[in-house]
């Protein structure tokens, strides 16, 4: 009980910053920094004042928010699954590892945004572009980390499997995958942020819907409060995704932290 109270007490900085922001922007009449109250009002009006049947989402929100989210989740999850599977398959073979590592390292180093113009000529504007961009951005770090994780599985784990005749399938799912999972999660953590970047960027450059698109329209119309609502929404999205991911990771890797602590 006491710890909860003290933990909440340590959040004092958030209201303080908000109030300071409100007061100073009102005082300075800053054009590009509307007070938080204004942003919140606009946020409500623009995105969340819809009918209860639509979970209070406005048409605007349904039109821009949902496609962004759908593409983000689908692209990220699909790319991660494929990249993890491929990484583990490659990582279990020393030869394949050596053959493909330089290529993967190279693709990992290419800033994925640079390929959006090329993708655009292949897919046109719209959902396929967003998906391609997200998939490309996410795949390489996840692939690289999965490969690394699967490659350096402790030899004794594998020998134990051999001694006790653990089947290939079970060796893969119950031993290699968990052993590689700390590395895989490190890759996934990077990929969440990259997916967001690629989503926003591909909506900036080649889309007629989505939060990023809506944001750029607001910017070009000098509609500063609306632009800020998009910033806030993306911020919340980033925060929620990150928090959900960390929670998931903590759950899956409990053993890893426990085992490390006692080393």
């Amino acid at each position: 009980m006491k710890t909860i109270v003290s933990r909440i007490a340590w959040l004092w900085i958030l209201p303080v910053v908000l109030v300071a922001w409100e007061v100073s922007t009102r005082a300075a009449q800053a054009v590009y920094f509307p007070p938080p109250s204004v942003i919140l009002a606009r946020l409500h009006e623009l995105w969340f004042s819809g009918p209860a049947a639509h979970v209070f989402l406005t048409d605007e929100a349904a039109h821009h928010l949902l496609p962004s989210l759908g593409r983000l989740v689908a692209g990220w999850a699909g790319a991660c699954l494929v990249a993890i599977a491929a990484g583990i398959a490659l990582g279990r073979s020393a030869v394949l590892c050596d053959v493909f590592s330089p290529l993967i390292h190279f693709f990992r180093s290419v800033p994925p945004p640079l390929l959006i113009p090329i993708f655009m000529t292949m897919t046109g504007i719209g959902t396929p572009l967003q998906l391609t961009a997200i998939v490309f951005g996410v795949s390489w770090p996840v692939l690289l980390n999965s490969l690394d994780g699967a490659r350096y599985v402790d030899r004794q784990y594998l020998e134990t499997c051999e001694v006790f005749g653990i089947s290939r399938f079970r060796r893969l799912t119950r031993v290699i995958l968990p052993a590689a999972s700390p590395k895989i999660f490190a890759g996934l953590r990077i990929s969440v942020a990259l997916a967001l970047i690629m989503m926003i960027l591909s909506e900036f450059i080649g889309s007629t819907e989505g939060i990023g698109y809506r944001m750029l329209v607001a910017q070009s119309e000098l509609d500063v409060p609306t632009m800020w609502t998009a910033i806030v929404l993306l911020g919340i999205l980033g925060f929620v995704l990150n928090a959900a991911f960390l929670r998931f990771e903590r759950h899956v890797l409990t053993w890893h932290r426990g085992a490390r602590k006692t080393d």
Partner: peptide
């Protein structure tokens, strides 16, 4: 088939992501 090994380094031969019971019963599937 009929051979088992107990290694010196227990921390690397038991799988840390499984419970003790799972560690013991995993090889029994065979």
């Amino acid at each position: 088939d009929d051979l088992a090994i107990v290694f010196q380094d227990y921390s690397r031969s038991l799988f840390p992501w499984m419970t003790v019971a799972d560690n013991v019963s995993l090889p029994l599937r065979r």
